[in-house]
Design a protein around this nucleic acid. Structure first.
Lengths: 222, 222
DNA sequence: GTCTATAAACCGATAGAC
DNA sequence: GTCTATCGGTTTATAGAC
């Protein structure tokens, strides 16, 4: 509710507020809103629990500020992902590779988003769309629209994100399958797999085993 | 820990135990383990909180029994999904359509599984694989392996599931995008979209706009 | 801004009557 | 098998000194 706290997001210097936000982001992503107590957050930051209530009116306010903080922290990187150069198709291929590396590296933000989608709180989901995903999503929809008009561009973006994300989301579970191999978690392997599937499908007629613009890294030859 | 409770899963008749399990499944899926209290569960079932501790040793025991109950409840339906008839490719297409309808209908089970994947508890994820997904996943891996050998079959199954599931998981969020249209939530529309993408990719060279074995329902012509 | 101290509510879990 | 009553601990949140 306090608009002053929103304006302080980019306050430089490691003050208490940003220290709390960073640690709280980590903890909320780990065990969810109800899985972390204000005591625990204060303890891990190294301050008194009462101090939290000087910076944030209550727990839900802290959580909302954490969401805004996390979004702002990632927005720039997202923009960098979408605005690549080259042909529309090579842009898309490059995005898939960069996005895969990105979600393989960053842990907290996407787990937080997944929890929000599970919870289904309309108010917060709308904030999420307005603050960050709305613009990026629109850019992606236009991007895939430039490559093909044979699909609903909106559904195609949903499919593309699900294609990549599910490899990361099932990471902990897949190791228990007998068909598991560690290479299946390699970001470059996942990216190449998703590129091939997204562009050509399992038929792989036109140039099977070839990804448009293999870019810098080596390609596995299946 | 008590093996007697495990054996009682299939006890016929609407007794208290199954009533608790069904309601607890709903509540745990909704707000997670820490988001529901034993008091709340008892209240919604219409019994005294103390009664819960006659049927379950403690809260974590109740949660584990809910997982086993949910798994057993879904196992039969899962088996029916995979064992269709026809050519390997038409089997796969039929699976995508049936799976899409299935997850569009069932709410609680997949939210519970998603929460487990987020939490990353190795012990429980292993139980999930051993009790349910292990067999079904293996069957799917063999199924896609019969259709194509140009991909890692394990990764292909992960991709296929992510492709379908993400449309459902982002359902609440997508309505806030300006590109949203209600038809994008229609199970048959989603299934046809995923079929086309999975088989042919966005290139759609071989038979674009055509899905193998359109089966019973009408096909949209884009 | 940060602390000590504490209020008020809720939590998981138990004892024991019926 | 279900209930009443309650214990001990934890939770969010506040009041007020420094």
């Amino acid at each position: 509710m306090t608009d002053q706290s929103t304006a302080q997001i980019d306050t430089p210097g490691g003050n208490t507020r940003t220290a709390v936000l960073e640690k709280a982001l980590e903890l909320f992503a780990e065990t969810g809103f109800n899985g972390v107590s204000m005591r625990r957050i204060a303890q891990e930051v190294g301050i008194n629990p009462a101090t939290l209530y000087h910076h944030f009116t209550h727990k839900e306010d802290l959580y909302e500020q954490v969401l805004r903080f996390a979004y702002a922290e990632q927005a720039a990187q997202f923009s960098a992902l979408v605005s690549t150069e080259g042909t529309p198709r090579s842009q898309l291929g490059e995005f898939i590779r960069e996005f895969t590396r990105y979600i393989a590296k960053d842990q907290h933000f996407f787990r937080l988003v997944k929890r929000e989608q599970l919870e289904g709180n309309s108010e917060r989901l709308k904030m999420l769309v307005d603050l960050l995903f709305g613009q990026q999503y629109g850019a992606m929809v236009r991007s895939v629209g430039r490559v093909t008009q044979a699909f609903d561009a909106h559904m195609l973006v949903t499919s593309l994100l699900g294609l990549v994300l599910h490899h990361y989301e099932t990471r902990h579970m897949r190791q228990f399958f007998s068909e598991y191999a560690p290479s299946q978690d390699d970001p470059d392997v996942v990216a190449d797999h998703c590129c091939r599937l997204f562009f050509f499908g399992i038929q792989g007629e036109a140039g099977a085993g070839q990804v448009p613009e293999p870019s810098t890294h080596a390609m596995p030859t299946p």
